[in-house]
Amino acid sequence: MAGGGEERNQRRGTWQPYAMLSPGMLWMALFFFAPMVILARYALSEPRDRFSGKYDLTWRFENFTEVFDRYGEQFLRSFRYSGIATLLCIALGYPLAYWIATRGGRYRNLLLGLVVVPFFTSYLVRTIAWTTLVGDEGPILGIAGALSLEGALDSIGITTNGGLLQTQTAVILGLTYNFLPFMVLPIYVSLEKIDFRLLDAAKDLYSSSRRAFWKVIFPLSLPGVFAGTLLTFIPASGDFVNAEFLGGPNNQMIGNVIQNEFFVQFDFASAAAISFILMFIITVGVLVYARIFGTDELSV
């Protein structure tokens, strides 16, 4: 996966690479794999009682099928919300990245900075600001009201009972918002690498700039889109903050369920089982993805 072939003059390491890897790998072994083993143990265990935290490892695989049956809806909902949010991020982020890369000129860095600046404020503070914006007395519904759009918005399902806060629209809006930079930056990076003289050459070839774009530029920028998709979709599908602050009781995601199973129900077995199902789905998706496109694109 490392795309080893791409590296020029890689050395053949003897002990050096292992020495360099050891602190990082030790850290991961201790604080990622060991905790995961404990979690896996819970996923196959039965509680002795509710609160003592004592679990007996009984290799109970039913934990998995039970939670899958019970929370199938929330799984689907999570992937639906994060899928829509990812698509929206592409729809909003690609044109923005393209504009900055091609028309930004010497303001490129400034414009890129503008994409990142909002994220210097805390995630929670931003999300609370969104509750103000989409609240019943907030400016968005105020404008919609002034334009007499309430009825229309309700009928197409954007608002529910005339409200925006605590609806799925608000959750998807929040997810899109919070992960948009993770889409814009990788797309920008891959667009920046493209030699735009290609576009001129392609225009001669295809005669229309639209066709030239779709035939030449877009395919070359796909690695950025794929990287952005991973960086958006993975955290979005496990997120619970947006659903908690912006969603209602009918919009809870699988992250909220895990949170609830761990910290309200104290059903560590179920919570761990859900966690592993979620991780399994995501990891398989990523591996398939990486097989095709390479994991190096996973970073900005």
């Binding site: 019943d136 529910t160 806060l165 209602g248 009918n250």
Partner: peptide, 22 residues
Amino acid sequence: KNDGQIRQFTGNDYQDDLVAGN
């Protein structure tokens, strides 16, 4: 809850929604 009568289940923060008119 299913038919949308109940907007949200909250903790202390019900006051935010009450005051904000939600």
